[in-house]
Computed example of a mutant assay.
Amino acid sequence: MAKTTTKTLMISTTLAVSVLGSAVHAATQWNVSLWGQRRAFTEHVEKLAELVEQKTNGEFTLNLSYGGLSNNRENLDGISFGAFEMAQFCAGYHPAKNPSITVLELPFLGVNSLEKEIEVSMAVYNHPAVKKDLARWNAVLLMPSPLPQYNVAGVGDAPSSLEDFKGLRVRATGGIGAAMETVGAVPTSMSATEVRQSIDSGVISAASFAPHAHMSFGTVEAADWWTTNLNPGTVNCPVVANSDALNSLSDEHRNALLDSIDEALEYYVEYYNNQTMSKWWPTLEERNIQQVTFSEQELQRFRNSVAEPAANAWIQEMNEQGLPAEELYQLTIDTIAD
C-alpha cells in the first residue's frame, strides 16, 4: 500500500512539474526601455502593455522601465544586441544611426494633427528602404510617438521678432535645430532629461519641446516666455522591437502585440488632446509666462528661408548614403497632402 502511495505521489509530482514547466515556458516577458517618467509621450506604450496582457491572459507581459535599462541615446544600440526586447528613441538623438526616418524631422513639413503625424510616420516606416535601414540594428519599427509642433520656452527677455533669436542658445534637435540656426540661434542637442539643469546652470537659455515635455521636464517652471506659433516642426520618436524577439514569439502573442498597436495609438491621441493640452494653457496663465505670437508675414519669411533649403540638403546627403531620398521625401509630402 505504501509503495502504491509513493508511486502515485511520484507520478502526481512529475505531472505537476511538467504542467508548471509548460506554463513557465508559455509565459513571455519583454523588457521595454523608456526614459524620464510616465507621461503623455509614453501613454501608447503603457496602453500597449495593458492590452497585450489582457489579450494573452497574462501570458505575455511588457515590463516598462523608465531609465533603468539604458540611456535614451543608447536604446537603439541596446535593441541591436538584445539587451531588451522593445524600446523608444528619437531619430534626432542619433541621425547617423537612422538616417532614413530623419525625413520626418525636416522643418515646416506642414503636419497639423497627431492623426496625420501617425499616418505619415507609418507610411515612411513601411517603406522597404526604411525597414532595411533599421534592420541594421536588428530593429523592427512598431509605431511612432506622435507629437504636436514644437515651440520654444526660454528665460530672460522674450523675443519680439525672429532677429531676437540671434545668439540664443536653445536646445533643439534634428530639423528644428537646423531651422533655429537659420535665424541665428545656437542649437544644442541634448536629451530631454538634461534640459532643466542646463537652463538652471546657464548652459542654454531656451528649449524647443512639445507642450507635454515642457511640463514633464520642468522647463515651464523656469520659463519667462513661450512662443505660441513658431511651429518649426517636430521630432520623430519610434517604438521598436528587437527583430529576433519578435520572430520568436508564438503566433498568438505576436498577433496580440501587433493587433493592439492601432488601439494604443488611438488612446494616445485622445489622452494627449484631452489631458495634456487641457493643462497646458492654464499652466502658462498660472505662471504668468509671456506668450509670444509672431505675425504670419514673419512666419512665412521664416518658412521660406528654411523649408526648401533643408529639404534639398537632406536629399543630397541621403542620396550620398545610398538611400532613395527623393522617393522618401515625396512619400512624406504626398501623405501629408492626401
Results as ranks from 00 to 15, higher is better:
residue 109 L to I: 00
residue 206 A to S: 10
residue 1 M to L: 10
residue 223 A to M: 13
residue 102 T to F: 00
residue 156 G to I: 11
residue 179 A to N: 07
residue 233 G to I: 08
residue 287 R to L: 15
residue 42 T to N: 07
residue 62 L to G: 00
residue 69 L to W: 13
residue 128 P to Y: 12
residue 74 E to W: 12
residue 24 V to S: 12
residue 158 A to S: 08
residue 97 K to G: 04
residue 330 Q to T: 14
residue 266 E to W: 04
residue 263 E to A: 06
residue 322 G to T: 08
residue 310 A to W: 00
residue 246 L to V: 11
residue 195 V to M: 08
residue 24 V to C: 13
residue 233 G to F: 10
residue 62 L to F: 01
residue 300 Q to L: 10
residue 203 V to I: 13
residue 125 Y to T: 01
residue 94 H to S: 14
residue 57 N to I: 01
residue 199 I to Y: 05
residue 212 H to V: 11
residue 289 I to V: 15
residue 48 L to W: 01
residue 87 A to W: 02
residue 255 N to R: 14
residue 138 N to I: 08
residue 233 G to C: 12
residue 8 T to W: 13
residue 32 V to M: 10
residue 337 A to T: 11
residue 78 G to I: 01
residue 46 E to I: 06
residue 49 A to F: 01
residue 311 A to E: 14
residue 61 T to V: 14
residue 264 A to E: 02
residue 74 E to C: 05
residue 116 K to Q: 15
residue 57 N to T: 08
residue 236 N to E: 12
residue 286 E to R: 10
residue 273 N to H: 04
residue 128 P to D: 09
residue 107 P to C: 10
residue 117 E to R: 10
residue 30 W to Q: 05
residue 269 V to Y: 03
residue 42 T to D: 09
residue 222 A to E: 14
residue 165 F to Y: 10
residue 70 S to R: 07
residue 70 S to V: 06
residue 215 M to E: 09
residue 14 T to V: 13
residue 246 L to Q: 05
residue 117 E to C: 06
residue 283 T to A: 15
residue 314 W to Y: 09
residue 156 G to T: 12
residue 250 S to M: 12
residue 149 Q to Y: 03
residue 289 I to S: 09
residue 296 E to T: 11
residue 331 L to A: 07
residue 19 V to L: 14
residue 36 G to A: 12
residue 102 T to D: 01
residue 188 T to R: 10
residue 51 L to W: 07
residue 156 G to C: 12
residue 286 E to W: 03
residue 193 T to P: 02
residue 193 T to G: 06
residue 276 T to W: 04
residue 314 W to E: 00
residue 224 D to W: 14
residue 315 I to N: 00
residue 298 E to V: 03
residue 291 Q to Y: 13
residue 167 G to A: 09
residue 145 S to H: 07
residue 111 V to T: 06
